[in-house]
Amino acid sequence: MDAATTLAPLAGRVRRGRRVADRTLRIGCTLATVIGAVVLGSILLMLIVQGLRGFTPALFTQPTPGPGSEGGGIANAILGSLVLTAIGIAVATPVGVMAGTYLAEYGRTSRLADVIRFLNDILLSAPSILIGLFVYTLMVRPMGSYSGWAGGVALAIIAVPVIVRTTEDMLRLVPGQLREAGAALGAPPSVVITSVTWRAASAGIVTGIILALARIAGETAPLLFTALNNNSWFSANLMGGVANLPVMIYQFALSPYPNWQGLAWAGALLITATILALSIVARLVIKPQRSR
Results as ranks from 00 to 15, higher is better:
271 I>S: 04
26 R>Q: 13
288 P>A: 00
241 G>M: 07
269 L>G: 08
102 Y>T: 05
22 D>M: 13
242 V>M: 02
288 P>V: 00
284 L>K: 12
220 T>V: 14
28 G>K: 04
52 L>W: 14
190 S>G: 05
90 A>S: 15
188 P>H: 11
34 V>L: 15
257 Y>G: 02
150 A>W: 03
150 A>R: 04
128 S>I: 08
62 Q>F: 06
6 T>P: 01
261 Q>I: 13
98 M>H: 07
45 L>V: 14
164 V>K: 05
159 A>R: 11
208 G>V: 09
99 A>E: 10
198 W>F: 15
123 L>G: 06
284 L>T: 02
193 I>S: 11
11 A>F: 14
23 R>M: 06
88 G>I: 04
204 G>T: 03
187 A>E: 08
157 I>G: 03
183 A>C: 00
171 L>F: 02
238 L>C: 07
202 S>P: 01
279 S>F: 13
180 E>F: 07
46 M>R: 13
201 A>P: 02
179 R>D: 11
259 N>R: 10
62 Q>C: 04
186 G>A: 10
195 S>H: 12
254 L>V: 05
231 N>S: 12
33 T>K: 00
165 R>G: 10
47 L>A: 15
266 A>P: 06
188 P>M: 02
98 M>W: 13
132 G>F: 07
190 S>L: 13
43 I>Q: 13
181 A>W: 09
73 G>H: 04
73 G>R: 01
66 G>M: 06
40 L>K: 00
201 A>F: 03
214 A>V: 09
35 I>S: 06
217 A>F: 14
65 P>V: 03
33 T>V: 12
22 D>L: 14
156 A>N: 02
188 P>Y: 00
154 A>E: 02
87 I>Y: 02
278 L>Y: 00
81 S>P: 05
253 A>K: 06
153 V>T: 11
264 A>K: 01
185 L>S: 08
257 Y>Q: 09
41 G>K: 12
42 S>E: 12
280 I>D: 05
244 N>K: 02
100 G>N: 02
61 T>Y: 08
219 E>I: 08
268 A>S: 13
94 P>W: 10
102 Y>N: 04
230 N>I: 06
226 T>Q: 11
208 G>D: 07
57 P>I: 08
84 L>I: 12
287 K>C: 02
273 A>M: 12
3 A>N: 12
96 G>I: 03
246 P>H: 11
141 R>V: 15
139 M>C: 09
248 M>P: 01
